[in-house]
Amino acid sequence: MSAYALPAEGGCRCGAMRFRVTAQPIMSAVCHCTGCQKMSGGAFSTTLMVPVAGFEVTKGNPVRGGTKKPGLVHNHCPECLSWVFTRIEGVDAFLNLRATLLDDATGFDPFIETYTSEKLAWVETPAPHKYETFPPMDAFPALLGDYATLIASEER
């Protein structure tokens, strides 16, 4: 697990939507919930928690898609409907970017796994922190600190 070379760019499958990341992610994760499985079409979704100030859509205008569940705004490419990022209503500090949409996603390693209670039995990841649902809110300060320390130690 190491820091990302910034700026990092990426986009949807068809190229109609592009984005740029200019701030280091504050955490990386995979989510095994059945909702993420269905939206990603895979065993889990990948996430980089990116500071909002360090993210910009450079091409295209995202549209809301996926579940209309209150509190979650899933942003998709308007052309191919790829799931690009998610905003959590009331959380202005970061957004959840689908890590595999980076032009170079080879550096992605999950730091936490969520919803392991719904994961497919054969799935294994190297994430050092695993949660049956989401981590409790009081666990986030330590997780964010541990992630930042880990990334900083890899930059040396």
Rank of each mutant, 00 (worst) to 15 (best):
E9L: 06
A148R: 15
V73I: 11
T133S: 15
T149R: 12
G145I: 11
A16K: 02
V84C: 09
L120S: 11
R18S: 04
C12T: 02
A53V: 06
I151W: 09
Q24K: 00
L6F: 03
N96D: 12
A148G: 11
L6M: 04
F134M: 10
L72K: 03
I112P: 04
S117D: 14
L97C: 02
G71P: 05
G15Y: 03
A121R: 11
A43W: 09
T116C: 15
A142V: 07
N96M: 12
V30P: 03
G90Y: 08
H129Y: 09
Y4A: 13
A121C: 11
G145D: 02
A105M: 07
L97E: 06
P70T: 13
K69P: 05
P25R: 12
L72R: 05
G11Q: 01
E154P: 10
E79R: 14
A121P: 15
A142L: 07
C31G: 00
P126D: 13
A29P: 06
L101C: 09
Q24Y: 06
E124F: 06
R98Q: 04
P51G: 13
V91H: 08
G35R: 12
T100L: 15
K119I: 09
I112H: 03
C80D: 14
I112T: 01
A93S: 10
A148F: 02
M27G: 01
S153G: 12
S40H: 08
G15R: 07
G60Q: 01
P126N: 00
L143I: 12
A142R: 15
C36F: 07
V73R: 02
A8D: 06
R87E: 08
G60F: 01
F55M: 05
A53R: 00
F134Y: 13
P135C: 10
G65F: 08
A105D: 11
K68N: 15
E89C: 06
P78V: 10
D146V: 11
F108L: 10
F55W: 02
L97T: 00
G10N: 01
K69C: 08
V84R: 06
G15S: 10
V63I: 11
F134S: 02
S40K: 08
A8P: 09
L144F: 07
E132D: 08
D92R: 14
G65Y: 11
C77A: 06
M17P: 01
V91A: 03
M137Y: 01
R64P: 03
R13H: 14
A93K: 14
V84M: 00
I112G: 00
I26Y: 04
E79L: 11
F94I: 06
V21T: 00
M137V: 00
A3Y: 14
A93E: 14
A121Q: 13
L102Q: 08
V91K: 04
L102N: 05
P126Q: 10
K130Y: 02
T86M: 03
Y131E: 07
T106P: 09
T114R: 08
K130A: 13
K68Y: 11
G145R: 12
T116A: 08
T22D: 09
D92N: 13
S45V: 05
E89F: 04
E132P: 00
T67K: 14
G60W: 01
G71K: 01
